[in-house]
């Protein structure tokens, strides 16, 4: 009885399920399959070996560095914001609105603004540096400074979402816990490290999962700010993408590598606690 009752309602979910699968699982499988093909249609590993020649390893390391740097910066800023947002004070609404605005700003607009801030000539970051009497910096001169610029530029649009997620976690903590800790004589730091952080850990895992995956897929921001120099894994894929050219097979191969990295990362985070805290 109950089974058939459930089945009837699953019928409502099927259109969404079919849609999502047809437009994601099917193309991803196609990508993996074609990565082992030559333009002529025979099987090969040459797409992968060609990628090694075009700097695949460095692109992967650079992507990893950008992701880790951006995650640390965003979690740090978001934690501060969320802790201020939960406090009742005059101006809270204004503060929340100001901090949330970048969430609505287009990635390309944000990338454009940061390319103006960090341009070597006529950049606003350099005019700050010169005002304080230091020598201006050519931000895109070396690979490491280019990557740092991408990490910095990424905080703006993406921190608000992390802050909102942490905020929903923080506002779920009961004030009586803090009151009890206060009466027991725990100071502000002690309360932060013994109550706030441990209780926030599950929701931080969710934030890390959501942001970590999108960090690895970061595309428009590096494309606008630093172009293909140095390439991240996504810009490397895009560089080879030409519907009319045979280099698209390199794109498929690089896509397959990115896909498996993402799957690996997601399963590690889910396994380490994300899914458990969700099902609770």
């Amino acid at each position: 009885m109950l089974k058939s009752h459930n089945l009837k309602y699953i019928a409502f979910i099927i259109p969404a399920l079919v849609y999502v699968s047809a437009l994601s699982i099917f193309p991803a499988a196609l990508s993996v399959y074609r990565s082992f093909l030559t333009p002529g249609g025979s099987y090969t590993f040459s797409n992968y070996s060609a990628l090694l020649h075009y700097g695949l390893v460095k692109a992967l390391i650079d992507t990893m560095l950008v992701s880790i740097g951006a995650l640390i910066l965003q979690l740090f800023l978001a934690l501060f914001i969320a802790m201020i947002m939960v406090k009742p004070f005059r101006g809270n609404r204004l503060f929340s609105s100001l901090v949330i605005i970048p969430y609505g700003i287009s990635t390309v607009v944000s990338a454009f603004i940061f390319s103006q801030i960090f341009s070597a000539v006529g950049g606003y970051a350099n005019s700050f540096i010169v005002d304080f009497g230091f020598r201006p910096i050519d931000w895109v001169a070396t690979s490491s400074s280019s990557l740092s610029v991408v990490v910095i530029a990424d905080y703006w649009k993406n921190t608000p979402l992390v802050a909102l997620i942490l905020f929903s976690g923080l506002s779920g903590l009961s004030p009586s816990m803090y009151e009890a800790a206060k009466t027991d004589g725990a100071g502000a730091f002690r309360r932060f490290f013994s109550i706030t952080l441990p209780n926030l850990a599950p929701i931080m895992a969710i934030a890390l999962l959501i942001r970590g995956v999108s960090e690895f897929n970061i595309f428009a921001l590096p494309l606008v700010i630093i172009g293909y120099n140095p390439p991240l894994i996504t810009t490397l894929i895009y560089e080879f993408y030409q519907t009319s050219s045979t280099t698209i097979y390199y794109s498929y191969a690089a896509s397959t590598i990115l896909l498996f990295i993402i799957l690996g990362y997601a399963s590690i985070v889910l396994w380490k606690g994300g899914a458990k805290s969700y099902e609770r």
Partner: peptide, 17 residues
């Protein structure tokens, strides 16, 4: 989980089809 599928990975085969 489906949502985590990298946009660029899915977009290229979709675009070809």
């Amino acid at each position: 989980l489906i949502n985590m599928m990298p946009g660029i990975v899915v977009a290229i085969p979709i675009s070809v089809e």
